[in-house]
């Protein structure tokens, strides 16, 4: 039944159902809000606080998800596909981070080509947003959840606008707005998920 489209779609539906809780959305939103508020206030502690809350939320995700949605062990085929996707995501992140480090070293040592130096001075925030949006888009591709592509677009637009508002020192506003949009979206998804999947009564031996 390898080529059976219906069963493949059913399997994908099952896989995607584990992203119906909106907690990854809230996680991303908190990181974005942390970024934006840190730029706005100049306090790095806000970034740390938001990141800590986001990580704690993810640590509790299993406890929220599993009693409501149940446990499933995917087929070896899906497990291999997930592994491949994770490798792609990790490779993308690693390459992105390496490029960032190389860029930072060149920038710090004033060794950047002149044209790139000028370009970066003008478009650094937009370029950063582009990289961030790429990471979100890769995540969307890996898990096959279409709303993550929308988030990628929101992130890119936010940073692009932030770039334009930079001369007025208002670059944090679009980032905070984007974080707010993703946060509200994630919260709505989470509330709908909790309503749709209330805690099941404890299992009995009736099965």
């Amino acid at each position: 039944m390898e080529g059976d489209r219906e069963l493949r779609e059913l399997e994908q539906k099952v896989f995607r159902s584990y992203f119906k809780d909106g907690l990854w959305d809230i996680y991303g939103a908190l990181i974005l809000l942390g970024f934006g508020l840190t730029i706005f206030t100049g306090s790095i502690y806000l970034m740390l606080a938001f990141t800590t809350v986001a990580v704690i939320l993810l640590l509790f995700r299993r406890r929220i998800l599993m009693p409501r949605l149940g446990q499933v062990n995917f087929s070896p085929g899906r497990q291999a596909k997930t592994k491949r996707s994770r490798i792609i995501a990790t490779a993308t992140l690693t390459v992105t981070m390496l490029l960032g480090v190389v860029f930072f070293i060149l920038y710090s040592a004033n060794n950047m080509p002149r044209w790139l130096d000028i370009w970066m001075a003008d478009y650094f925030v937009a370029a950063f947003g582009g990289v961030l949006a790429l990471v979100v888009a890769v995540a969307a591709y890996v898990v096959g959840v279409w709303r993550y592509y929308v988030y990628a677009a929101v992130v890119f637009i936010a940073y692009f606008v932030a770039n334009m508002l930079r001369p007025n020192d208002m670059e944090s506003i679009p980032v905070i707005v984007a974080g707010g949009i993703v946060f509200i979206s994630g919260l709505i998804i989470l509330i709908r998920f909790l309503r749709k999947y209330p805690l099941s009564p404890q299992e009995t031996d009736s099965v």
Partner: peptide
Amino acid sequence: AYLFVVQSADFIFLQTQTGLTWGNLS
């Protein structure tokens, strides 16, 4: 069908996916 596309699943998973009541599923 659900059990065919996964390796194994628990009772709650089947209940949420199929929409069947506890007794019916059992």
